[in-house]
Structures are given as structure tokens and as C-alpha cells.
Write a protein that binds this DNA or RNA. Structure first.
Lengths: 220, 220
DNA sequence: CCCTAATACATCTGGGAGACATATATCGCG
DNA sequence: CGCGATATATGTCTCCCAGATGTATTAGGG
């Protein structure tokens, strides 16, 4: 047959391209539909941006991993795409390849890192903000499984997703919230210490929050 | 005096620039030292890349938020920097400003999202990989607190960090590992179901992993 | 039939990661 | 003392990516 795997020798794809291919493996759809599906289903753990999507669709088509289905009704009208045999094969081999390490960018945590210098109440304020951030995060997660309004094609893949992502998101947010509560107790303890003179005892923990030697502790 | 806050009206800084400023608020140091400190202390939750660091140092100096201390011994030799008054003020107002939402890029999770189509054992393989990823992650976290080898200046800020980051990292990895174990039990259940005919009962959970209604379940 | 909004695709700008390139300091060793 | 190897330190380049913005198309209401 025509499309042997050797037709398109081996192309390096960007992670975004693999994700696009993944969505097209669920069903044939347009770029815009991919965008919305990605936004609803996995925005929390993986972004697909406008600026990457359309060039990548073109690139994937050029390399025979996807093909247009039907005709675009106009130069700027909706165009649906479907995955090819070669695309499915590539996708499977991607699934079996090593994944990139998890990458996190957490500005609130950076602030917390430096907040020690500014005293316990700065830490407290940042923990409050973190609570807000993660309750917002949880709302995003909750939108992943809005009951039974999911399109059929995604329900077909339900063994892995989106239920799995939903469960992970829930686990993740709940666990983070618990950590914040623990840290807030620490802050309260530090504040008590500060107002009532510093006693030497410490609760049950090995990492005692040691005072700065001559530092800018009580500058607020 | 000369450096009133109005000298440098208001500049938008990149998140990386704020982090650099934060490290210089701990102590005067060179770009390379910042790089190493960031790598050791917060690589897991915030990256500072080579390509951003040196241009940003120049930018911060131009805007009077940091200044060189001493002289560079040669055109390409070590140059130490210290934070200025204006820099400290800017840093504090950054700490009080709203933080960007947490951003995560988790390729393994994307694969898991699409893995349902490929059957339970693909999910199982990906969960195994996830375990490896997070045990690696935990080793990074463990390196944050290597006993007492931390430089003094960072120990001075210990109320917030690096102990706080260490605790968060530990909490995060342990929690993720627990989730993986739970999901692996699900996979085992699905595999049992697959080999011994599908019984209708389900363990105690509300999100039952439903079979695909005519799908490519047993294609391996 | 026009106005407006939603849909859909496309482009642009700047931040960020990592590889690579270059320059300097240090150290072992004969 | 000299010389290579390694670690330190700064600088540059490329590509990926997010988000903003721009523009064309479609749908709906009056």
C-alpha cells in the first residue's frame, strides 16, 4: 500500500504536536474544536496555545500524520482534520517513549521562598493567596467532568480520561490545601512566639524555624 | 538623596527578574551563584535559565534595582551584584501583588489522558513511568536540604525557605505516589475483568471505569 | 437586509529552556 | 615553572510556547 511508515522517515514533533495528534485520535475535528477540548479537559496540566496550534496542524499534514477531511468552505472557514495510519502509529510509539519530566512554574511558591525575611505575616498572606489560587484551580478541575455533557468520542476513551485527569486534579488540589493548613499553623505558632517573647521550646518538628542572628526580624 | 523611587518610574519586570531580585535580597552575589542557588533550592518549582539570567541582570542594573559591587576583574570575569534600596522596595511590592496562576506541563499525564483507547496495560505502563518520574523528582527535593551545608545567607531566611519548599516538595511527591497506587489498583481491576469476563460489580467508587461500547479494547 | 456576536483561523511579540560558545580561574603534575 | 584538564562564569542562539491581537466567516435578531 501507499503509506508505509517509510514514506515520512522520522520527524521530531513538539510535545504540542503530539497532543494535537492525540485529540485527533479521539475523533476527526477542527483546530478550534481541539482548542476547546484541550481547554476544558486538560488546561490545568497542559496548555495548547493558539499560536502553536495552526502551524502545527499544517506541519502534521505536511508530514502525512493527519489529513484534511472534506473541503474547507472558503479560505478561512472551518477545516476538519483526521489522523492517518502513519499518525496513529506515530502516536502509539510516542506513548511508549520516555516522557519529559514534569515542569512547574509556581510564582506564589517563589514568593514564599523569599518571604521568610519579611516576617511570619508575609508568609501568612502568601499562604492565603495560595489558598485562593488552588480553589480557583479546583474550579477548573470541576469543569472537566460536568456530569454527562461530554461529547461521545471523549467518553469512549473514558478508561484513561477525562475521569483519570479529574481524579488526579482532585487529589492534587485537596492535598495542597491540606499542606497549606499545616503551614498556616506554623505561622500562627511563630506569631504567638513573637508577641509573647521567644520561648525556647518547639513543637514536634526537626526543622525548627530558626531566628535570624541579628537580622531584620521585627521590622514591620 | 539621589535614588528616590521616582528616579525609575515603574518598569514591568518578568517573573524571572523578580526571582533574581529575590536572590540578591538574600545576599550580594554573582549571576552564576544565583544560577546555582536557584538550581539547588527551587529547580523543582521554578526554573531560571542561563539565557534569561544575564540579560535580566543587565536590565535590572539599567533600571537601578541592582548595582555592581566591586569591579569585574576582566571583561568576562566574575561580577557580583547587590540589590539597591529601590530594588528592595520593588521586591516588597511584588510580594504583595497578585501571583500568576500555577502553570504545569506534565507530558506523562497527557499520555495517560489518551491511553484509555489503548487498553488498561498502556495505562499501567504509564503509571509505572509516572512513579519513576516522581521518585526522581523526590531526589531533587531531597537535595534542597542536605543537612547543614547551606550557605549562611539562605539559612537566615529559613523561616520561609528552603525548609518550606522542602516540606512542600515532600508533601507533593508523597501525595502523588499515593494517587498512583490507587490508580494502579484500578488498572489491576480492569485487567481482571478483561481476562475473566466482565462482571457487573465495581469496588467502592463513584467514577466507574466504563468499557468502550464497541471499542478497541482487546487489541493487544 | 444590516448590525452584532460568536465562531474559526492566523499572526505577532516577548518570555523561557536548553544547547552552545567563549573567557577566566584553579589545580595537578612533571 | 609551565602546561593541560577541569571548574567557574558570562554571553549568545534557537526553538517552543502563551497570550494578545487581527481578520474572516457564520448565525441570529430586529
Amino acid at each position: 500500500m501507499l503509506n508505509s511508515p517509510e514514506d515520512h522517515p522520522k520527524v521530531e514533533l513538539t510535545p504540542t504536536a503530539w497532543a494535537i495528534l492525540g485529540f485527533l485520535s479521539l475523533k476527526a475535528q477542527s483546530g478550534y474544536e481541539i482548542l476547546r477540548a484541550a481547554k476544558r479537559s486538560m488546561e490545568a496540566f497542559w496548555g495548547i496555545s493558539n499560536g502553536q496550534l495552526y502551524p502545527q496542524l499544517k506541519f502534521l499534514a505536511e508530514h502525512g500524520l493527519i489529513r484534511p477531511v472534506g473541503e474547507a468552505e472558503g479560505p478561512r472557514s472551518r477545516q476538519r482534520w483526521e489522523i492517518t495510519e502513519a499518525g496513529s502509529a506515530a502516536l502509539r510509539s510516542w506513548m511508549e517513549s520516555l516522557s519529559a519530566p514534569v515542569q512547574i512554574r509556581d510564582e506564589n511558591l517563589v514568593k514564599l521562598f523569599f518571604a521568610g525575611q519579611s516576617g511570619p505575616d508575609m508568609v501568612g498572606r502568601l499562604l492565603e493567596e495560595r489558598k485562593r489560587i488552588f480553589s480557583q484551580f479546583e474550579r477548573v478541575i470541576d469543569a472537566v467532568l460536568p456530569g454527562d455533557t461530554l461529547p461521545e468520542a471523549e467518553q469512549a476513551a473514558a478508561l484513561g480520561a477525562p475521569e483519570l485527569l479529574f481524579r488526579y486534579g482532585k487529589h492534587f488540589t485537596k492535598s495542597t490545601m491540606r499542606w497549606i493548613d499545616q503551614e498556616e499553623e506554623r505561622v500562627l505558632a511563630a506569631l504567638r512566639e513573637q508577641t509573647s517573647g521567644p520561648p525556647e521550646d518547639e513543637p514536634d518538628d526537626k526543622n525548627e524555624p530558626r531566628d535570624e542572628p541579628g537580622g531584620p526580624a521585627g521590622e514591620r
